[in-house]
Each structure stands twice: as C-alpha cells, then as structure tokens.
C-alpha cells in the first residue's frame, strides 16, 4: 500500500504575507523599545527605566487618562446616537428617510470633519453668527466655548458625527437580519412595552451581533489624532498628539519618553486586540 500522506509545503507567499504584517511592526516596536530603555539614541547612557517611570507621572499619565475618558465618552455618545437612530427607523413611520442621510458623514475625512465642526462651533463661527443674528447673544464673548474647550465638546461632536452614523447603519442592517420587526411584534403581543422591547430585546440582540465591531471602533477612537489636534486644547492632550509633540520638540531629552509612550500605546492596542480576537473570534475571523 502506498503511503500518500504528504507534508504540507510552506507557501512562500504566505510567509511573505506574515513578514509584511509582522516585521514592520516588530522592527518599529523594537527600535522604540530600545530607545525608550536608553539603549540607543543620541543621548543614550545605557539601560535606564527613566523614560518608563516618567510615563506614570505628569503629562504622560494625564494624556493617557484623558485619551481613555475621551474614547469612552465618544463611544457612549456614538452608541446612543446609533441605537436611537436605528430604533427610530424600526418603530417610527417615515423614519426610514433618515437612512440615506447617514451615509453623508462617511464622506468626510477626520481632518475635514474637524475643520467643518470648527467652522460651525468656534466663537466667531457659523452657529455663533446665526444665533447672534437671531438675538440669542450679544457677541463673540457671550458665545460658549465649544471648541478647544475644557469639556472637549468639539471633539465629542466630531467623533459622534463620524462614528455614530456608521454604527447606526450597521445596527439597522443587524436589526433586519435579526428580523427585529417580527420580534418586536411578538414581544408586544406577549405584553411587553416598547421600552421593554428596546432594553430587553433590541439592545442586547444588536450588541450580540455588533459588539466586536463597536469595540474595534473603540480601538480606533483610542488612536484618534487629527480631530484632537485641531479641536483639542494644548493641555491635556490625547496620547497620539502628546507623543508626536514629544517627538518633534527640539529637546532631544524627550525622545525616550516619546518612544516609551508610543511603545506603550502600541502594546496596549495589541493586547486589547488580542483579547478582542479571542473573545469575538467567530465574528472577526470567520472568512
């Protein structure tokens, strides 16, 4: 009898694929880590944990906490928008008309969306002029600060504008796939109010199908750059802006700190992603 078990040959193209995905990250991360530990660099004085210690104090720690908070609230607002819009499209007659409009913000680059919102919300912007013309306030000094403000309102508006509609589109598709109109009818016939259907059926059913997708957006928002760059204040800054600030300063002493922060960010995203990929394996990795 002939033995026909064969060794699976290594596909050179797949090896190249892995190399293209992994090597640039490894080399980049390796260099940054080495720099952050003082092992390389112009002012290198040998191995040191100084840069990493500075990560946990002052500006760097503020930037990290601020980024986390901004990510959280952006995601919450986008989710509220998306759930409200998709639910309205499900239960309100005529609300389906909302659907085509949801695609419009997808045509905006983050830079453009940030600038457009700036044009609307800055104290001398369109909204301020419109409300001034209507006699709502007495001038620039009376208009509340909505961009480059302490509450990061401008950033949150842009993030909601960019992410909310995308999630709303996804949620509507998922609601149709879950046959939500029929489910709602069934739940109503069993005595549930619309509020109960929303919280007990709609929200969990959509989350089960789209949770992975939403969390990926969380990862994206954690790395947002252009929007806080244009609409954020100089203090506190998001992590990405903080890192590029440190990188481009004339003071070379800041470079190890910038590299430590960049490595920490990249490692945090990778660990988070690893967790997401194992938890939502079926949704994310099923070709």
């Amino acid at each position: 009898m002939m033995q026909i078990r064969r060794m699976r040959r290594l596909d050179p193209w797949l090896l190249l694929y892995v190399a293209v995905l992994v090597l640039p990250l490894l080399f980049g991360l390796g260099y940054s880590l080495a720099y952050s530990f003082g092992m390389i660099g112009l002012l290198s004085e040998g191995f040191s944990l100084g840069a990493w210690q500075r990560l946990f104090e002052g500006d760097a720690a503020d930037a990290f906490l601020y980024t986390l908070a901004l990510t959280f609230w952006s995601l919450v607002l986008a989710l509220v928008f998306a759930y409200a819009a998709s639910w309205a499209m499900l239960i309100r007659p005529g609300a389906g008309r909302l659907y085509p409009w949801l695609f419009v913000p997808l045509t905006l680059a983050p830079v453009v969306a940030a600038f457009a919102v700036f044009a609307w919300l800055n104290p001398a912007g369109l909204l301020s002029r419109l409300t001034f013309a209507l006699g709502v306030h007495d001038g620039v000094q009376d208009f509340p600060r909505l961009v480059q403000d302490a509450g990061s309102i401008g950033i949150l508006v842009v993030h909601t504008l960019l992410v909310g509609p995308v999630l709303a589109i996804v949620f509507r598709q998922q609601a149709n796939a879950e046959r939500m109109p029929a489910l709602r009818k069934t739940a109503r016939s069993l005595g549930a109010s619309d509020a109960v259907v929303f919280f007990r059926v709609f929200v969990p059913a959509i989350w089960r199908r789209s949770g992975a997708f939403v969390l990926l957006y969380g990862v994206y928002l954690f790395g947002t750059y252009e929007v806080p760059l244009l609409l954020g204040r100089s203090q506190p800054r998001v992590l990405t802006v903080y890192i590029t600030d440190q990188m481009t300063r004339f003071d070379l002493g800041n470079l190890p700190l910038a590299h430590a922060a960049a490595s920490a960010y990249a490692l945090a995203v990778m660990i988070l992603l690893l967790r997401l990929l194992t938890r939502w394996n079926r949704r994310l990795l099923q070709p």
């Binding site: 002939m2 026909i4 078990r5």
Partner: peptide
C-alpha cells in the same frame, strides 16, 4: 477524499 477536496492519510 474521492472528489479531491481532502487528501487521505494512507491508501490508494
């Protein structure tokens, strides 16, 4: 196995 979608461990 007959269709060629998979390969057998042994046999002809």
């Amino acid at each position: 196995l007959l269709a060629g979608e998979e390969e057998p461990d042994t046999g002809r």
